[in-house]
Design a protein around this nucleic acid. Structure first.
Length: 106
DNA sequence: GCCATGGCTAGTA
DNA sequence: GCCATGGCTAGTA
């Protein structure tokens, strides 16, 4: 486990219920703003092992990024269960739901 | 070589 | 729509 990966995992574990973060935002916070795709890889391979709230991660446009319908529906229903509104095309309003860790430190 | 991205540009209306 | 990106991993030697 590299430091970058550890930071990504810690950041994802810190996303609160009812909020989302983007791949690029997580990568930037972990120290490399260009490593968004690595965040994808980590989610893909480590979500289960680390019990990550994978459903709270969306792309920069506020859309569910998963390809398969079944998986998209699963993510949408997890989000809605937490109070995050998802429209028919899998879009989330980032103005409302984006979690920016800086907020916590007022 | 993979990948659940992101940012920019061309092309349409 | 295109394609550069980058940390990681599988597969070979």
């Amino acid at each position: 486990m590299t430091p970058f990966t550890e930071r990504v995992i810690a950041i994802i574990q810190g996303i609160p219920e009812g909020a989302v973060m983007t791949y690029g935002q997580i990568a930037a916070l972990a120290g490399n703003h260009r490593a968004a795709r690595q965040v994808v890889r980590i989610l893909h391979s480590s979500s289960r092992a680390y019990a990550l709230p994978w459903h709270r991660v969306v792309n920069a446009r506020g859309e569910i990024a998963l390809r398969e319908d079944a998986a998209r529906n699963e993510q949408a229903s997890y989000l809605e269960a937490e109070g995050v509104a998802v429209d028919g095309r899998g879009r989330i309003d980032l103005e409302k739901y984006l979690f920016t860790p800086d907020d916590s430190f007022g």
